[in-house]
Every structure is written in C-alpha cells, then in structure tokens.
Design a protein around this nucleic acid. Structure first.
Lengths: 149, 149
DNA sequence: TAAAGATATATGCACTTGCATCTATATTGA
DNA sequence: TCAATATAGATGCAAGTGCATATATCTTTA
C-alpha cells in the first residue's frame, strides 16, 4: 500500500506533487482564513485552537504540555501564546497542587465567549474555502489520505 | 460535485475534518522536513523554492514579482529573503533596463550548486515523510483533491 | 538520603514576519 | 505636458518565532 519511489532514491513524481500540493493548498486556505479573521477584527487562528482545546477539556482547563501535545505548538511558543491570552483575560494560570512545576491553564468566561465568536467566523470561512470546493465524499477521502501522513 | 454544508451555515463535519487534517498533516511533514534540512546544515526550505524557480526560469533569472506569484511569498518577505540569498552569494540583483523600477534576480553558480545540494536532502526527506506513507496511486488521488483547493 | 538526572515551564536574544509606508519610476488623462 | 494615480520594490517598527538556556521542582539511584 505504501512505498513509492524510484531506484535512485528520488521520490516518484506523484509523491513530490502530493507534497507540493499539500504545502500550497494549506498556505492558500490558511491565508484566506486568517484574512477572514482579520477582517472580522478577531485574533489569529492559533488562539482559537488553544481556546477550543480548553473548552473541550474537563473543567475547562489543561496543563501546558497537554495543550502542546494536542496542538503541535512548540513549548516556548505556547508559553508565550498563553501570555497573550492571559493578558487579554481569555485564560488564567493557576497553581497545580500535585506538582509544583506544573500549572493549570483555565479558560475564563470571556475566553469561552471569544471562542464562540471566533467559531462563527471560522465556520463560514471553512465552509467557503473548503466546503465550497469539495463534496462531502471528497472531503472524507481527503481527510483519510491526510491522516496517513 | 462541490458544496457540502448544513442548513445553519456550519460546515459538514467531513469538511471541517478535511481542513483540520490538512493543517496537521502539513505542519507535521513540514516540521519533519525542516528538521532534516537543519540536521544537514542547510538553509530553510523557503530558500529552495526561490532558487528552484530561478533555476527553472529562462536565463536563470526572474523579476521579484514573478517569484512572488510562483511561490506565494509576500512582497516584503520575498524582498528580505532575496537580501539573505544575496548576502550568501546565491543570487544577484541586476538592473532591469526596460523599467527602472524593476530588477532582475539572477541565480549565481553557487546558488545553483546549493540548490542541488538541498535537493538531495529534500528528495530523501519527501521520500521518507510522504513516499513512505502513501502509494503512488494514493499520492495521485491526494494531489488531485488538494488541487481543488 | 544526597547527588545526578529528568521534567515542566519561562525567558533573553537574534532572526523573521506583518503592517504600514517610503522611494523611485511609469502610465494616464485633462 | 503636467498633475494624478498606479506599480515595483525596499524599509522602519512592532510583534512573533526559534534556539539555547534558566529556574523550579520532581524522580531515581547509589
């Protein structure tokens, strides 16, 4: 099922094209979505991901390293993103008693509200830039192929 | 063939999952590839794209706005990327006589050599992180779906 | 149980990016 | 033909990122 390469170690053209396509499609759609966020006066997409993980989580809170694992953010970038979210009052840092090194990151009510507001824009945006171009069946195929990577 | 949405304007779950999958797959694979470049002591991937466009182009040169269109780089980021490439001797800025506002960006011999060196790593990397996970047929399907976006 | 090592998070610094705007040159239209 | 407008590319500044390392705390092991 897998493993498609030419003798010399160079990838088969179809493989390279899939990779280039992946880069370009992601860049295009992401840029379009970020633009929609900006037009709506909303913060960047990265904020959404963190808020959403927190809202989904039990008690509306997670440890930084848990957010890290769920979002693919790097440790230091997440630390600073949390700084910004905290400055805007969307999350709070709280002590984690069971381990003095740890902290809880807790979404505030305002954080929940902002996430909902962001989702309204985000949903329309996904709908326009992805839903408008693929059928549901195609989207399922695409997701399945992407999950292999 | 296209247009999959629920009544309320929210995207169908398959659409959202395709989008999330696109983000994550791209981030993962890109991070893996950049890491390979770094391990090999090579400059970041963005350099490759510009050098490759120049090498492919007639006479090994293009105008900045042409590179911009081919790579999805923003105008100001490209301008500075060219600064860096020029500082390393990989490209040269030359006058464009037909329009005093314009410039030619020309790859140097060293630029060509560096691109080839980068390609050796890049090819192995694509092979490992994409080719190793998809058959050629799957890669073709994936590329076809991505091109719709 | 103290020293060595590991883990969770934060941070200084250099580099990159985004935004807004600048400069220089070209094109248009009165 | 000149003023107004448009286009190509560069750049100052603020914000974000990556790297290396710091700090605090926990775990292991001799």
């Amino acid at each position: 099922m897998a493993k498609a390469s030419l003798q010399n170690g160079a990838p088969a053209p179809a493989i390279t094209q899939a990779w280039i396509g992946l880069m370009r499609a992601q860049q295009r759609v992401l840029a379009a979505i970020e633009k929609d966020f900006k037009s709506a006066g909303l913060p960047p997409l990265g904020w959404y991901d963190v808020l959403w993980e927190l809202v989904k989580a039990d008690g509306g809170r997670l440890r930084p390293f848990e957010i890290e694992a769920r979002t693919l953010l790097t440790q230091y970038n997440l630390s600073r993103l949390i700084d910004r979210l905290e400055r805007e009052g969307l999350v709070r840092r709280e002590a984690f008693d069971a381990d003095g090194r740890g902290r809880w990151i807790v979404v505030t009510e305002e954080g929940r509200a902002v996430r909902e507001r962001m989702w309204r824009t985000y949903a329309r945006s996904i709908e326009r830039h992805v839903g408008g171009k693929l059928s549901e069946a195609e989207a399922r195929d695409l997701a399945a192929l992407l999950s292999r990577l």
